[in-house]
Design a protein around this nucleic acid. Sequence first.
DNA 1: ATGGTCGTAACACGA
Length: 243
Amino acid sequence: MRLPHVQEWLAENPVDVLCLQETKLVDEKFPALALQELGYHVWYTGQKTYNGVALLSRLEGVDPVYDLPGVDAAQKRFLAVTINGVRVVNVYIPNGSSVGSDKYDYKLQWLEALQEFLADELTRHDKLALLGDYNIAPDDRDVHDPAAWADGVLVSEPERAAFGKLQQLGLSDAFRVGNDEAGWFSWWDYRQGAFRRNMGLRIDHILVTDALRGALQNCHIDKTPRAWERPSDHAPVIAEFSL
DNA sequence: ATGGTCGTAACACGA
């Protein structure tokens, strides 16, 4: 976790809720105090070197869940907390490595388990947001070079179908509520000067129920921290609601 | 050209 970057970003963007993925820290090493000092309640579940998710909130939260039922609990990729009546579900969906690999099969299984979890949660929560690193570019507008990426991991039809099933549960892609343009990305490879050349993918998303969609004021991607020194390869997605 | 970068960790691996 790049704590100085989180602190610097929050100073400019004092959001009510922040979801982090790939913290890559065991819980004993999570910088809870530094974030509490900024006025946040924190929840986190992590492991050494890989995965790890965290959730920050200015308001108190209840009913935390630290594992997605039905998948390997050793991989820390899931964290749900209810804040101000909104069920916030933070996910780090598996990357999948390459189409046809064991990791790809695991990704599709994980997405199936996520759909089942959400179908149940949605019976109890009118206002729900599913957000994080999905490792899926929903359609070709979300890919800098669709021909080069065709059928590869992050864009393959089964992955996009799984994303579609999440939408069919009644969830809307907040970014697409107000923007149908191609060429807006949230992740750029470290190689080949990909960020400078805007060779990216939009794989980080905020999906919301209709009750939240009605309160959505705007949704955008902040490319600023991707240009910082030693950055994350992702850029934050920001959604604003009037609740 | 089946490459390239990054971080952690270890001389490889996952992203």
